[in-house]
């Protein structure tokens, strides 16, 4: 309603001009003061995030796919949704899992076995009864237990697999742009390659954090990286798994978003 627009802006302008305010200057020193020696940043991030139930894993560039898949298998996850178009996604899909457990190539041709059509039922190998089951028994073969984890690429619009996304995905893997020492927060800029729901809908969110991408504060990160020049569709700070205290101040984790947040520190 453009009438409303004109009326509102007219009133604001007229009354402001009748009584202008001179605001005091904004002194950002209290934010600039939030600094930690480089070696203290990571321990602080870890401490703060662990206080709100975030889990941490240590890994290297060489072994993180193994660390992640081992962890998820032990956690009882049957599948992992990942971003095939990112460098991390490419690394993960190149990691030698037994071929029958990989779906990337099938998925390219349409209905991969991990995908149900948007109205179809979940495939039988994706578990639906949530919460997540406990640890799986060791596979009878005695081989490495990654064999039970299925990789599913997020390579199509959400509309094509909404139901499976909500009912059949155990874990999602994303990268991060770094982390913030002041508040213990991960920085994520989801993209066309790494969609927004990867870090929200799966019950476990696994996030890779490069140990050299640490900032003192949110303010410092946005200034150093010149965020204001070009904001992405969505920018996020994530500081733990989803939580609520709406029932009598009792903290409960995993209310709508991930029940578990697992940060993999990659050195």
């Amino acid at each position: 309603m453009s009438d409303a627009r004109a009326a509102i802006l007219g009133t604001l302008r007229r009354t402001r001009d009748a009584h202008p305010v001179t605001p005091p200057p904004s002194d950002f020193t209290p934010l600039a003061d939030k600094q930690w020696p480089p070696e203290e940043r990571l321990p602080r991030i870890r401490r703060m995030m662990e206080a709100v139930h975030t889990e941490f894993l240590d890994a290297t560039e060489a072994d993180w796919p193994a660390v992640v898949t081992d962890f998820l298998t032990r956690a009882g996850a049957a599948n992992l949704l990942y971003a095939p178009g990112t460098a991390d996604g490419a690394t993960l899909s190149a990691y030698p899992l037994p071929p029958r457990e990989r779906e990337g190539t099938h998925a390219q041709h349409g209905e991969g076995e991990g995908f149900a059509g948007s109205d179809g039922p979940s495939p039988s190998d994706t578990p639906s009864p949530f919460p997540l089951r406990g640890p799986l028994p060791s596979p009878e073969t005695g081989e490495e237990n990654t064999a039970s984890l299925t990789l599913i690429p997020y390579d199509r619009p959400i509309e094509d697999f909404k139901q499976q996304m909500f009912e059949g995905i155990d874990a999602g893997l994303t990268g991060t742009l770094g982390a913030i020492a002041d508040t213990g927060s991960l920085i994520l800029w989801p993209s066309a390659d790494e969609p927004r729901l990867l870090s929200l809908v799966p019950h476990i969110h696994v996030a890779l954090l490069r140990a050299d991408a640490l900032y003192d504060s949110f303010w410092q990160a946005m200034r150093d990286q010149r965020w204001a020049d070009a904001m992405p569709t969505n920018a996020l700070l994530i500081s733990g798994p989803s939580k609520t205290a709406d029932i009598e101040q009792t903290l409960a984790y995993g209310v709508h978003g991930p029940k578990r947040l697992v940060v993999v520190i990659v050195r």
């Binding site: 703060m48 213990g184 927060s185 569709t233 996020l236 500081s239 978003g257």
Partner: peptide, 15 residues
């Protein structure tokens, strides 16, 4: 709490 679990900054619909 030092920060909320999510700080969500939205600048555009799906591109």
């Amino acid at each position: 709490q030092p920060i909320t679990t999510y700080v969500n900054m939205i600048s555009s619909p799906r591109k």
